Simulated scan of single mutants.
Amino acid sequence: MAKKGILLINLGSPRSTAVEDVKEYLDEFLMDEKVIDYRWIFRALLVQGIILKTRPAKSAEAYKTVWTDEGSPLIVITKKIQKKLQKLMDVPVEIGMRYAEPSIETGIRNLVEKGITEIVLFPLYPQYAMSTTETVIEKAEEVRKKKFPGVRINYVQPFYNRDLYTDCLAESIKEKLPEDFDALLFSYHGVPERHIYKTDPTKTCNMNDCCHKDTNPSHSFCYRHQCFNTTDSVIRKLELPKSKTIVSFQSRLGKDKWIEPYTDHTLETIPQKGIKNLAIVCPAFVSDCLETLEEISVEGKEQFLEAGGEKFTYIPCLNDEDRWIEVIRILCEEQLNQFYLL
């Protein structure tokens, strides 16, 4: 009988807050053609010729503000998830990161050394995007074919529209949402607009009204639609009027057009619209990291308050909440069971 295991995949993090470690991490991350999708020579000129000259030092300072005694928050939280999930599963559970260590190759090798030949690989991203789910799957397949050809992998698909996930997210938000909030802002990680079109094999996405249609051939591949769908599902479960909710997209890089509206612009303008008490959640992330702990809960808070806001509440990611671990367990069990059907 084939032995089965689970590999949880998250984004990754530098080994430390040292500038050289941050530079090494950013080089691997930004040179991924699924993240910056230019031809190699132009990507190298941009990343290694421009970005890596100044950004590592700035990012290192930002990482220092969120780093814990145990290390990177994202790595620490992912390990906590692994530990809790392992207690619920009778198969080995390992972790891997798309960038840096422990890598996807390290995670697969750790399972193979335990005799595992069938792996459920779980990219910890609710919504599908070229720069998240797609690059994880491509990298895992590359590693499998080169290093572990005898291993079979089943992938947990994006779960943005699964009730078990949106129920979990809604419950978590409800517990932390202030009673007197004026608006709840859903801030998702942004992507360049061209990524949306590139990932659409149906060529039916127009980046306009199709995101809000009940059905459209592009929905399975459209990150923007999936973000709006997640939001609509959660606010319905929270029984919130749409007038008290906002959707925006953060973390844009460079001068290219990214999907809108932008989070920083939103934070700077909504106080003038009477929104003084803001709650904000980041549902593109399941684990708190630099983009949530520093970019949103520190920089975003400063932007909002300087623009005239009065109260800012950051609602943490699901992290290692027990109800989220149960969602992970169910989604993994579904794919473990698929091996028996093949």
Rank of each mutant, 00 (worst) to 15 (best):
G5D: 07
L26M: 05
F312I: 12
S72Y: 04
S72E: 00
P201S: 03
V156R: 05
V91Q: 08
T215N: 14
M130D: 04
T135E: 05
K83Q: 15
G96P: 08
L74D: 04
I153W: 02
R55Y: 13
K53T: 12
G96V: 09
G12C: 06
D37V: 07
Y99E: 06
D90C: 12
K3E: 11
T135Y: 08
V247C: 12
Y155M: 01
D264E: 12
V327R: 02
P56A: 13
P178L: 09
C282E: 04
H219Y: 10
P271H: 03
L26Q: 02
S248H: 12
K114N: 11
V22S: 04
K87Q: 15
T133F: 13
T132I: 08
N110S: 15
Q303G: 00
F312R: 08
K146V: 03
P261F: 02
C317Y: 03
I51K: 10
V35T: 07
I330E: 12
E302S: 12
F339W: 11
P92V: 08
Q127Y: 09
T166K: 06
V234R: 09
L26P: 04
I280N: 06
S72W: 10
R224I: 04
L253G: 06
V281T: 13
K146C: 04
T17S: 10
E20H: 12
E142D: 14
V19N: 10
E33N: 10
H265S: 13
L8C: 06
K84C: 09
P123A: 13
N337S: 15
V191T: 06
G308M: 11
R152S: 14
D209E: 15
D69R: 12
V136F: 10
D256P: 00
I41H: 00
I296D: 10
V112H: 02
R15M: 02
D182G: 02
E294F: 11
D264F: 01
K146G: 06
I36P: 00
I36S: 02
Q272C: 10
I104Q: 05
L278K: 04
P102Q: 12
C168E: 05
K34T: 01
F312Q: 06
D214R: 15
E268M: 14
